[in-house]
Amino acid sequence: MITGQMLRDGVISAANNISNSRQAVDALNIFPVPDGDTGTNMSMTIASASDDIKNMEDNSDLGDVAKRVASALLRGARGNSGVILSLIFRGFSKAFKGLEKADGNDIARAFRMGSDAAYKAVMKPTEGTILTVVRCAAEAAEEIAPSNNEPIEVFLAAIEAAKEAL
């Protein structure tokens, strides 16, 4: 099961990772123009969530942590990539609402709701962007969850699909 503590620690780790990798992510950005700030914007966005949740109690419910992450991401969103990242987590937050812990099916539903929220918010969704990455992650999670409800396995399948899409 995925707990609130695991989500909190995962977001903090992700913030550190994107901060360390922001120049590489900046270099990836070529759509719609190669503006070179996607990694920087995503780093600043997720850092706002990391700062907001770092002092949450270890026993915080998953739904509470997810809600706080989504809210902090929205308030701290920078650039289009930051706004889209906040929308993905808004979908996660809705999927985890009221949950103390999540199983593999919950994880798959969170990826689907995150993907759907991001696609709906973009007037002209374009494949080959962060939208494609999160959609592929959702599809992989949904594919494995019915036969393997282990949350870590579902999450790893989503991550591998996201890497492949990227």
Score class of each variant (00 low, 15 high):
Ser60Asn: 04
Leu87Val: 10
Pro34Glu: 06
Ala70Ile: 10
Thr45Asn: 02
Ala117Asn: 11
Asp52Trp: 04
Val134Tyr: 12
Val83Ile: 15
Ser48Trp: 13
Pro34Gly: 14
Lys54His: 09
Asp26Ile: 10
Arg78Gln: 13
Arg22Tyr: 03
Val65Glu: 01
Ser147Val: 14
Asn149Cys: 09
Ala117Ile: 09
Arg8Glu: 01
Val33Asp: 15
Ser81His: 05
Glu153Gln: 12
Phe92Val: 10
Leu156Trp: 02
Lys163Met: 05
Leu85Phe: 07
Lys97Phe: 11
Gly79Trp: 04
Phe111Pro: 00
Met42Gly: 07
Val83Gln: 07
Gly91Lys: 06
Ala138His: 01
Val83Pro: 07
Arg75Cys: 02
Thr45Val: 10
Leu85Glu: 14
Arg8Asp: 03
Ile53Ser: 13
Ser71Asn: 09
Thr40Asp: 07
Leu99Val: 02
Ser43Phe: 03
Leu62Thr: 07
Met1Arg: 08
Asn20Tyr: 11
Asp35Asn: 12
Thr129Val: 13
Glu153Tyr: 07
Ile30Thr: 15
Asn80Ser: 15
Pro34Ser: 15
Leu99Ala: 02
Gly82Ser: 11
Asn41Gln: 08
Gly39Asp: 04
Arg78Phe: 06
Asp35Tyr: 04
Gly104Cys: 10
Pro34Ala: 15
Phe111Ala: 11
Lys101Trp: 04
Leu7Ile: 07
Pro146Thr: 05
Val65Tyr: 02
Pro146Ile: 04
Lys124Gly: 05
Gln23Glu: 15
Phe31Cys: 14
Gly39Ala: 09
Thr40Lys: 13
Asn29Cys: 06
Ala117Gln: 12
Asn148Trp: 01
Met123Ser: 12
Gln5Trp: 03
Phe92Leu: 12
Leu87Ala: 02
Ser81Pro: 09
Lys54Trp: 06
Ala157Tyr: 00
Asn149Lys: 10
Ile88Thr: 03
Ile30Val: 15
Thr3Met: 05
Ala158Trp: 00
Glu160Pro: 05
Ser50Ala: 15
Lys67Glu: 11
Gly10Asn: 09
Arg112Asp: 03
Ala138Gln: 02
Asn148Cys: 04
Ile12Thr: 06
Leu62Cys: 04
Val134Trp: 08
Ala121Arg: 03
Met56His: 04
Gly63Ile: 08
Lys54Arg: 13
Ile107Thr: 00
Ile53Met: 11
Leu166Gln: 03
Lys163Ile: 12
Glu143Tyr: 07
Arg109Thr: 15
Thr40Ser: 14
Arg90Gln: 12
Met113Leu: 14
Gln5Pro: 00
Glu153Val: 14
Arg75Asp: 00
Ala95Met: 06
Pro125Met: 05
Tyr119Arg: 15
Asn148Gln: 09
Ile84Lys: 07
Gly82Thr: 15
Asn29Leu: 05
Lys67Thr: 06
Leu7Glu: 04
Phe96Gly: 03
Asp9Tyr: 03
Ala70Met: 07
Ala138Val: 04
Asp37Leu: 13
Ala137Ser: 11
Asp9Glu: 12
Thr132Phe: 08
Ser81Ala: 15
Glu142Gly: 01
Ser115Met: 02
Phe155Tyr: 14
Ala118Met: 10
Gly4Ser: 13
Glu164Cys: 08
Asn20Trp: 14
Ile12Glu: 02
Ser71Lys: 11
Ala24Arg: 11
Arg135Pro: 00
Ala158Asp: 00
Asp51Ser: 15
Asn41Leu: 06
Gly76Val: 12
Asp116Asn: 12
Thr126Gly: 02
Thr40Pro: 07
Leu62Arg: 08
Phe96Ile: 08
Ala108Glu: 02
Ser60His: 04
Gly10Thr: 14
Val133Glu: 05
Ala108Ser: 12
Tyr119Pro: 02
Ser81Trp: 09
